[in-house]
């Protein structure tokens, strides 16, 4: 229905599900991404019970304000070609980014997105 209403703009559709087990069905119906508040709630409560203070980290990351640290996905067009040409490992890439770290907008590498998959802190 959303696609039909906005044929020209091709909106990127985020759907919320109560039960994540229906994720594939929802994606099949046209959702680009699926979120589930219940799944996140349980995960944050569990993590915070195990590692006290963890809920504050998620809270910080979910705030969308100026001068707040957020997660960004930097795509190929904004990454220096040398990262690909030199076949950098994750560790090499993190080192390079750390060397360029500047006070106005310090950057920390936390993962790689390959296709639809996000790999945080990948092993070699």
């Amino acid at each position: 229905a959303i696609d039909k209403l906005a044929k020209k703009t091709k909106p990127y559709i985020i759907a919320e599900l109560m039960d994540r087990s229906n994720k594939e069905l929802t994606e099949g119906a046209g959702a680009n991404e699926v979120v589930s508040a219940g799944f996140y709630r349980t995960g944050i409560m569990l993590q915070s019970a195990l590692y006290h203070g963890m809920s504050h980290i998620f809270h910080e990351l979910l705030q969308y304000e100026q001068n707040k640290t957020s997660v960004f996905i930097v795509t190929e067009k904004n990454i220096p070609q040398e990262f690909y040409d030199e076949k950098l490992t994750f560790q090499d890439a993190a080192r390079k980014i750390n060397e360029k770290r500047k006070a106005p907008n310090p950057v920390i590498l936390i993962g790689v997105k390959r296709g639809d998959q996000i790999i945080l802190n990948p092993h070699s």
Partner: peptide, 20 residues
């Protein structure tokens, strides 16, 4: 994970969209 390949994107923490 071996190395960064063509098409890979990087996931980072920053205050603004970064220039790498």
């Amino acid at each position: 994970f071996d190395h960064i390949k063509k098409g890979d994107a990087l996931v980072v923490l920053a205050e603004k969209f970064p220039k790498l």
